[in-house]
Structure formats: C-alpha cells, structure tokens
Design a protein around this nucleic acid. Structure first.
Lengths: 280, 280
DNA sequence: CGTGCCAGGTGCCCT
DNA sequence: AGGGCACTTGGCACG
C-alpha cells in the first residue's frame, strides 16, 4: 500500500509550499501542475500517514469515512458516528460535509492548525481511531474528527491564478446611481459615499434639488424591516450631526420591499425607489 | 478503464435510492454500508460516465480538475480556468471549492437538478470539455462548470443517521432567563416568547416588578448597533400596539456590546444586561 | 411559497 | 485585533 511520494506543483501553483520539478511516472517528464493522489480503503495508519504527508506538502486533503465530530469554541457541538466527507485546506480551513445541505455540518475557518494522529487499539482498551484536529485561537476553537473507518484519502495539488468576477452586487447598484443620479430623483446630487456618522456609514449622502440633505440606503435585493431600521439610524444620526432643524430625507433603494417594511417606511416618512443592480 | 458498477448501500443508508445487496469484491459477501469509488486521471468521457452514474445512484460525487465556472441567477459571475474541487450532493446542492477559504467560490443550494455531459472535440472546432450544470427555479439560477481536464472523480455512498447536537445558541440563552427571570432584573416576570408585533416578534415579553411592560431582545454574542435598532423597532411597535401612555422598557441581553451600540442604547433609554448562553 | 430572523454565520474593509 | 456591514448569505419556523 506504499504510494509514490506525491510531486509538488511548480512555482505558479498557488498552493505549493516550495518549488519542485518532479517526474510523476516514468515517461512523464513534464512538470506536473496539478495532481490528485488517492488511497482507497487504507488502514488507519496508512490514512494517517497520507494525510500528514498531504498537510506537510500544503495539499488540499479530503477524507471520507465513518467518524464522530466534536466542536468547542464560540458554541459547542457533538455529532455521533456516520459517514462524512472532510476537507482540509492548506490555508487552515476545515469542512465536514454530510450528504445534505450546502453548509458543512461542522467546520473551522482559515488560519487553523491541522493535526492528524492515530490512537488506541494497541492496548485493546479502546478502539483504534484516526484523529483529525483543527485548532485556532482568538477565539479559542477546536474541531476534532475521529474516524473509526476511512474509505478514502485524497491529496490534491493544483494551480488557480484566477479570481471570481461577480456582478449584481450592492456596489454595482451604487455605481448605477452615481452614474445617473436622476434615477433616485430629478435634481439629486450625490456628495459622498460611505459618509460616516455616529451610527455607521451612509451608503450615499447627497442633496435634493432644494438643497435638503438626503440619506440613501442601498440593498441589492428585496428588503425587510431591518433595512428601514438601518436607514432610520443613519437619518437620526445625521440630523444630530448636522444639528440643523432642517429635516433629512431618507431614501431606500432596492428591487422591492415587504409589506412590513413599507409600513415602517411610511411611519418614518421615508421614500422607496425601486431599482435593481445592473443585470450584466 | 471500465470500472465495476458501484454497489448501492443497504436500506439504512440515508442516501440510497433503492436497496441492493451487492458483492463488492469476491470474498466480501456482506452488504456494504458505505463505499468510495474513485477514478484517477480519467478521460473526459469516462469521467462523464462515472459522474452520470453517481448522480443516478444518488451518490455524493466529487470532481477535481481544471475548469471554468459560470453562474447566473440572483447575481452573476465568471471564473476563468483553474484547478478546483467540485462536490455534487444527492439533495441537489453543488459546491465549487478552491484551495482557499471556508466558503465555496461558487455554489448552488439544495434542490437543484444536476446534469453532466461531454461536448466538443469531435468536430475539431472547439476543445473537448466535460460540462456540469446545476439548475434550479424560484429563483431561476444556473451554475455551469466546464472541465478541460479531470484528475479525479469519486462517488461516495454512506450512512448517517445522527444529527448535530449544538449548544450555546440563543435558544439556550432564552431558556436560561425563563428558568431564572431574576437574571434580567429582580421581579421580572416573563409573559410570552415570540410575541408578535407589527414590527416583528419579541424574543421575550414580560412585566417588571411595577407592572410595566418589558421587551427583551436576546443575542448569543457581542452585539452592535443593529441589535439596538431591532429592540427599538419592537418597543416602538409595542407602544403603539398597547396604545398606552405608559412607557415600555427595553432590555438587550447579550454577552457584551460595542461602544456605538452602548451609545445607541443610552440614546433610546434602553438597558443592557450582560449574560451569556450556558457554556455546556 | 413569502416574511422574518438566527447563525459557531463568513468575508471585506476600515480604524 | 475589533467594529461595522454586505452576502448568490443559508437555514428554519411560521403564516
């Protein structure tokens, strides 16, 4: 069950720890950019060794098998035995996935130290197990996955130079209004974005045609009461900040608004402008 | 590159579609509860077949390789070629992970239809690719992952009957106060939880020793201005609801509070009670 | 299915 | 490191 020492990707691989040039297989003389090495149904000891090796080499490591999971930190949790998929990332993140849900059942954020060891079984007192631990501080948090059986261990090396290009965000919506202020109201003049107040930063601050102060709160999607409260905080704070008697107008800009939020808007004398982030 | 048809787990496996009894390997006559089947460096066609088979059998399927990712729905995004880890869950969830971050770079929530196909290459006009598509409606969203190279395909079958036991939640904090109302204030009497108002539901509604109405907002962790705004909404709404002149007292219960939130609390005449969810 | 809100939210940016 | 907030937030419970 000895497996070849996995080569490490070249210098442009973003998750390499060092630069190597390695021959993967006789007859494969090129530098491997990416690679996946897999153990199937390994012993716990072999799995442990492969995982330790993968972590050492800054690989992305996955483990599938029957395990229990314990977490303690900001909250605490336990999960009895079952088959789950565990992913350990070289940046210190850990994910435990069941076969359901988009969210991991347990996890650890980037910045953790991963540790793996085999324990028990020798003295016959306890069942043998493979223990995966991810620990961090600030806050102190510990995730512990104990495998009684490992069905697969994989280590992945790869290269990924590109970043996600996302559109349809609140930032895009803001830009749309700054490009064409009349979308808010004829005569509107933006004066600042992220204008700071004692209650937080105003998305867009400006003036209407009559020179009255305007606070604009932006939301990329349909909004509820919380967005109205937010606008309320900023308008209140600005009125105090300006210590002026002139009323400050509050605008909520979003694709749509719920009934309750509509009611709250009207209670506070705020205005709603239906507008979406650009589609492209 | 022909691989054995993967057995499907027994009736207690929660992600089986049907019940089979299968002999995995000659000499392994028992029903397999869990299994991991892996292809390394498959052709795109072989990968496609394995993925299609895994999806068909309600397995958890992972694919690692060089791909581009396009998403369109509530927002839209593109991601140029790189090596990523894709997980397809039998409940319809899809996750695309790079080697960094706890969050997937792209994803699709449960309830999607996964589809896989091979395309191009035959006519020489376009490079051959393996296309993974996850689609849902309400809202209409589409995720498309195009692999130019697949380094690994795995299909996982497993059993997981146990659910996560979590403690340290807001619910635990609420129970703590209901068990010992004096933790809020001597003489406090809880009257209702989740009491509905036009502005939303009040975590705990009750009376103080003098019979004045009390609104309690709970947070399991340190809070900022948003929690104060929330409390404000409920107190306002309750005062209108009761159409009484008697002032309603507002309490914020949390482990701690930020400076800005402290300021806002004092502005509104609310009180803060430092309290944590029980540790166990 | 929409509304409202908690979450071990996470991630990003700013001080 | 802590604060404030957006997020394709996800997830749940309720009308």
């Amino acid at each position: 069950m000895e497996r070849a020492s996995p080569p490490v990707p070249g210098p442009d691989a973003f998750w390499s720890c060092e630069s190597y040039v390695v021959v993967v297989t006789p007859g494969t003389p090129t530098t491997q950019r990416s690679q996946a090495v897999t153990l199937e149904q390994p012993t716990l000891e072999a799995a442990c060794e492969a995982i330790a090796d993968g972590l050492e080499r800054e690989a992305l490591v996955t483990v599938f098998g029957r395990c229990t999971v314990d977490y303690d930190g900001r909250a605490s949790s336990t999960l009895e035995a079952g088959d789950r998929h565990v992913m350990l990332k070289p940046d210190g993140a850990a994910l435990v996935h069941t076969d359901e849900g988009q969210q991991p059942v347990n996890w650890q954020p980037p910045g953790c130290d991963h540790d793996v060891r085999c324990d028990g079984g020798a003295d016959g007192e306890s069942d043998p197990e493979l223990i995966l631990e991810s620990v961090r501080s600030t806050p102190d948090e510990r995730l512990c996955v104990r495998f009684e059986e490992v069905l697969q261990v994989s280590t992945f090396f790869g290269a990924d130079e590109n970043e996600l290009a996302l559109s349809g965000t609140e930032e895009d919506l803001r830009q749309r209004i700054l490009d064409e202020p009349a979308l808010l109201e004829t005569g509107f003049t933006p004066l600042a974005t992220e204008r700071d107040t004692p209650a937080g930063a105003i998305d867009i601050y400006g003036e209407d045609a009559a020179g009255r102060s305007v606070v604009v709160e932006l939301k990329r999607r349909r909004v509820g009461p919380d967005a109205v409260s937010q606008l309320r905080r900023y308008v209140d704070a600005l009125e105090r900040d300006l210590h002026a008697d002139a009323a400050v107008r509050g605008f909520l800009v979003a694709p749509s608004v719920t009934d309750r939020a509509t009611r709250l808007l009207s209670d506070h004398g705020f205005e709603f402008v239906p507008l979406e982030p650009p589609a492209e």
